[in-house]
Design a protein around this nucleic acid. Structure first.
Lengths: 221, 221
DNA sequence: CACCGACTTGGACGATTGACCAGAACCCGC
DNA sequence: GCGGGTTCTGGTCAATCGTCCAAGTCGGTG
């Protein structure tokens, strides 16, 4: 029904590629990765069957493009802006909550990301993607944690990368669990507890030379 | 090649069912859930094609049986025996390490469990299984945490079920991350850090009436 | 207007899939 | 040795899949 009947007849192959990728993602979100046949994808995009292999050498070529673009977008969508002056616990709470709202609002998108990762792990030609995807999540989290520390005048008592991986571990794990049982209360309770735990891995930043006492930051309980 | 050429000709349908389930799991572990066609499964089991629908009404019937049995076995395999007198941190370390060894030794099994869960989430007739599976993992973890507390004379500062869900969250998350990038050092570092974090959520058990001072337990750093 | 390269299109092919079935083979109690 | 019920078997079917292709359409340049 979403058959995107934009009467657009002629368009450059590059744009058609983007539309097919978007249509593929919609089909997968609605019916799962297994249902995303070339025919289902072109139907969703409102294109004739032939359009597919005019734009892509193979279905795997589309899959690869879909995975990179959707992972990139997921990493971007999951982070939120920091509220200035908030302490570590408050910022972590904000961050987890923002992440959580994204997940709960569109669980189908998360399912697709997991399905794509699983699929890629089984395909030798795509096996490099999950590693890159996971690394990009950790990178993004490192940036976020650094910002949280700066924002609160605090520093972390564990190496940033170890901590970031732990945070990604928690978000992945909470998501997976919620997808299984849809228990939002339990998921939120876990996130709150983890936020406290992670906050306990920070301490007030050691004063640098030539710098006065650090300004205190608003404190959350 | 594992075609299980036990010359066994005639056998009761019930036993054949079990063998088909086992064969299906092997195929999935080796080549992924998508490759587990009825033909591939019977070939792995060394049976003729007709045997499949003689034992199972449909492929989904096998999938359901496969999922329940493998989840049951996974829950059993992941827990280890407690070393008596060990403190909370030590026991948690033991537990995580034992879990980790299972994962690292047979990643393919873990991948199949994830793929099965994903698949079930997409099939209305199987959608109840992930909830049950997850609950059984949490149950098992509750039992383990209780034993850890008893063993160390400690109690938890969070409701057992919340804590258990957090532990499952961590193990799931660590597994997922490691399947993506196969970085064993990072996974172990994260597990160690989480063990310390969880240990900090316990405290010496409050003395009950009519009981002397709690005996100290050997302490791990 | 003619021409060429880029774009469009639906049909067709060979492979694979889950499911079904008719009948052969077998075991056991009589 | 004679039924009768269980077990066994390979062929077959319709559906669906990814891919390819030949012929058609269009826009812009010389």
């Amino acid at each position: 029904m979403t058959d995107e009947a934009t009467g657009e007849r002629r368009m450059p192959a590059e744009e058609r590629r983007r539309e097919l990728v978007a249509a593929a993602f919609r089909v997968m979100a609605r019916e799962g990765i297994a249902a995303a046949s070339t025919r289902a994808i072109v139907a969703e995009a409102g294109m004739p069957l032939g359009a597919f292999h005019y734009c892509f050498r193979s279905k795997q070529e589309l899959l690869r493009e879909l995975m990179t673009s959707s992972a990139r977008e997921a990493a971007r969508a999951a982070v939120t802006a920091l509220r200035p002056g908030l302490d570590v616990l408050g910022s972590l709470r904000d961050g987890f909550l923002a992440y959580w709202q994204v997940i709960e609002a569109e669980p189908a998108k998360q399912m697709v990301l997991h399905e794509l990762t699983q699929y890629a792990l089984r395909q030798p030609e795509l096996a490099d993607l999950p590693r890159w995807e996971y690394e990009s999540y950790v990178d993004e989290t490192v940036r976020y944690l650094r910002a949280v520390g700066d924002n609160a005048g605090a520093e972390w008592t564990l190496p940033e990368r170890v901590l970031a991986r732990m945070v990604v571990t928690v978000t992945d794990g909470v998501t997976l669990g919620w997808l299984a049982d849809r228990d939002s209360d339990a998921a939120l309770a876990a996130l709150e507890a983890f936020a406290r735990q992670f906050a306990s891995l920070s301490r007030p930043r050691a004063p640098r030379r030539g710098e006065g006492r650090a300004r205190g930051s608003r404190q959350a309980r």
